[in-house]
């Protein structure tokens, strides 16, 4: 997987560094799945776990949703410009 990561990103033009970073940022939001599992397994009376897990789900979602939306907005700028050009 490490090699895949390196392979995938090896030839990226510097123009795309920021969107790429942002996209990668969204992808590591998969931690959200861990948060969901934690949450779903927590005993209903274990409030510490529930509260922390709840917080984790919120933060994880922020990471995923925000990450993808921001990336999309950045890339939107590239594509809209291309469309108006051609």
């Amino acid at each position: 997987m490490i090699f895949v990561g390196i392979e995938v990103i090896g030839r990226v033009p510097s123009v795309l560094h920021t969107p790429l970073m942002s996209g990668a940022n969204a992808i590591h939001g998969v931690v959200i799945i861990g948060a969901i599992i934690v949450m779903g397994k927590a005993e209903t009376d274990n409030y510490l776990a529930l509260i922390l897990g709840f917080l984790a789900v919120i933060l994880g979602t922020l990471n995923v949703v925000g990450g993808f939306v921001v990336t999309d907005r950045m890339l939107e700028m590239f594509s809209s410009k291309k469309n108006s050009k051609k």
């Binding site: 997987m1 390196i6 990103i9 990226v12 790429l20 992808i27 590591h28 998969v30």
Partner: peptide, 29 residues
């Protein structure tokens, strides 16, 4: 990498993939 740790913790493939992918790609970037 932290996400990948979560992947190990739950033996969760998608967290592992995503985490390591970003870990490697991020380092290279």
């Amino acid at each position: 990498v932290a996400a990948a740790c979560g992947g190990f913790l739950y033996n969760n493939k998608v967290m592992l993939t995503g985490g390591i992918l970003v870990g490697a790609a991020g380092t290279l970037l």
